[in-house]
Simulated assay, not measured.
Amino acid sequence: MIGRRGFLRGAGALTAGAVLSGTLGGCASDETTVRMAAGESGGFYYAFAQLLSRTAAGSGVRIEVVSTAGSVDNLGLLARGGAEVGLVLADSVADSADPPPAIGRVYENYLQVAVATDGPIRSAGDLRGARINVGATGSGAAHTGEKLLSAAGLSPAEVTATHLPLAEAVTALRQGRIDALLWAGGVPTPALADPGVRVLDLGSLTEPMRERFGYLYDPVLIPAGTYPGSPAVHTIGVANLLVAAPALADSTARALTEALLAHADSLVPAEAAGTQFLDARSLIGTGTVPLHPGAAAAYRRHHG
């Protein structure tokens, strides 16, 4: 907190007056289009991006939601100029060669390993020799999944990995073509709310993940009944960040930040079980990822 406050004081020369009332392009009638790299349809990235797009409508910023494979894909789009902002897992940003600046920390993604309800896999240790879908190519799940398997003591040679999008992976699991799938998303994820699907308890892997790969991995609980007939399940949480291309105008970054601050309560997808967060107080907690100067100005205006 001290370091971040120091950063914000250093941003004091920035003008903090541009808000959602429409000063993005110099006059109230101007509208700036921002492409937001989201995620797969049916996931929380995409649902959150749609909510933010509707919230910002008419404010002077128009958000165009772009469907993607997920975090790694989104970072690539930002680097190539294919999007101005994007949603990413914190560890995907931390592991990137040139991390983009952040607008804010929006909510928590839960690592979820789903298996057949009547199948033999009961714990992470039972995944040895399994056919596992570790997330679509370019997703944060695929990036984090490699670490998760390592923390479970599994080498790449000990599993058969596939990279299907979520909807296809769930179908493959139901049909017995794979034994497990890894998903990084909110809870409940509608595609996993199936009586034939069960989510594994990964609580024993939290400390190995933190010891090997750092503090970004949080112990979290999926409450009983989140999925049909499910008990309480411990798993691993990873924060989501809304990040921006460094070239994004300060006024646009401020406007997006103001939208998050003003409408935090209405920007959690309705199907959430209350285990995610989007809180005006925690938005600033982007860890080692620096804030975009426009976002820093907005937070300084609200928090000093």
Results as ranks from 00 to 15, higher is better:
Ala247Tyr: 05
Thr117His: 15
Leu89Tyr: 10
Gly119Lys: 10
Phe48Ser: 00
Thr162Val: 12
Pro156Val: 02
Arg5Lys: 10
Pro165Ile: 07
Arg35Leu: 03
Arg35Gln: 10
Tyr299Gly: 07
Asp194Trp: 01
Thr226Gly: 06
Gly60Thr: 01
Glu108Met: 14
Tyr107Lys: 01
Ile284Gln: 04
Leu111Ala: 03
Glu146Lys: 14
Val93Lys: 02
Asp250Gly: 04
Thr55Gln: 14
Gly12Val: 12
Ala249Ile: 06
Ala193Glu: 08
Glu40Ala: 07
Arg131Met: 10
Ala136Arg: 14
Asp30Pro: 00
Thr235Gly: 11
Arg281Val: 09
Gly76Val: 06
Leu242Gln: 02
Ala297Phe: 11
Gly58Tyr: 09
Glu158Pro: 13
Leu256Pro: 04
Ser123Pro: 03
Leu278Asn: 13
Arg5Cys: 06
Gly70Met: 05
Ala249Tyr: 11
Gly140Asp: 06
Arg128Ser: 13
Ala57Trp: 04
Glu271Leu: 13
Pro246Met: 05
Val72Tyr: 00
Tyr227Leu: 07
Arg128Tyr: 08
Gly26Arg: 10
Gly76Asp: 12
Ala142Tyr: 11
Glu146Cys: 02
Arg62His: 14
Val19Tyr: 05
Asn109Gln: 14
Phe48His: 14
Thr235Val: 09
Arg122Tyr: 08
Gly82Ala: 13
Gly12Asn: 12
Val170His: 02
Asp126Lys: 04
Asn74Glu: 09
Met209Asp: 07
Ala298Ile: 06
Asp265Arg: 15
Leu241Met: 00
Gly70Pro: 06
Arg177Lys: 15
Gly70Ser: 10
Glu207Phe: 01
Ala295Phe: 05
Gly70Leu: 06
His303Ser: 11
Leu261Asp: 02
Ala97Cys: 05
Thr162Leu: 03
His302Phe: 11
Ile63Glu: 07
Glu146Asp: 13
Gly285Cys: 12
Asp30Ser: 15
Ala184Trp: 04
